[in-house]
């Protein structure tokens, strides 16, 4: 508790120092005393890249890289054959899959897909394979 208070007080101090100095001398930076640089593009309002933080920032970076660790994008389409099964990402060793079989079907076939070899939908026989997905952070 004490340590965290000290840390936050130190952070405020650093920010204040950085804010008060119109030009931050380089040696301040070497001492780690210069606050974060506020580039703020041209006119003084920052971009998301400069200011976004936390999960918001991680999501923006993931979208930029095209990485879908947060399950944001629509599911990819696969031929779902033995050679090219539908790859189902999962952070666990199993995941529930819902197979629509044919596109106009109004009932969905739900089943557990386990890690290992490809499994088939019990109704239409389409191939599914669990693909290990890294935890986002």
């Amino acid at each position: 508790m004490m340590a965290s208070r000290l840390l936050s007080a130190w952070g405020t101090l650093r920010a204040l120092r950085a804010a008060r100095l119109p030009y931050t001398p380089a040696w301040l930076g070497q001492l780690g005393w210069a606050g974060p640089v506020r580039a703020m593009s041209d006119g003084g309002i920052p971009s998301n890249k400069e200011q976004a933080t936390g999960l918001e920032r991680k999501v923006l970076e993931a979208i930029e890289k095209g990485v879908d660790t947060y399950n944001m994008f629509p599911p990819k389409r696969y031929p779902r054959t033995k050679e090219e099964p539908c790859l189902v990402p999962s952070v666990n060793k199993k995941r529930i899959v819902g197979c629509v079989c044919e596109e106009d079907n109004s009932s969905i076939i739900w089943f557990w897909l386990h890690a290992g070899d490809a499994q088939r939908c019990p109704s239409c026989g389409a191939f599914y394979k669990l693909e290990h997905q890294e935890m986002p952070h």
Partner: peptide, 9 residues
Amino acid sequence: TFQGHHTLF
């Protein structure tokens, strides 16, 4: 603003 909870979604 400070914790970044307001993602695009």
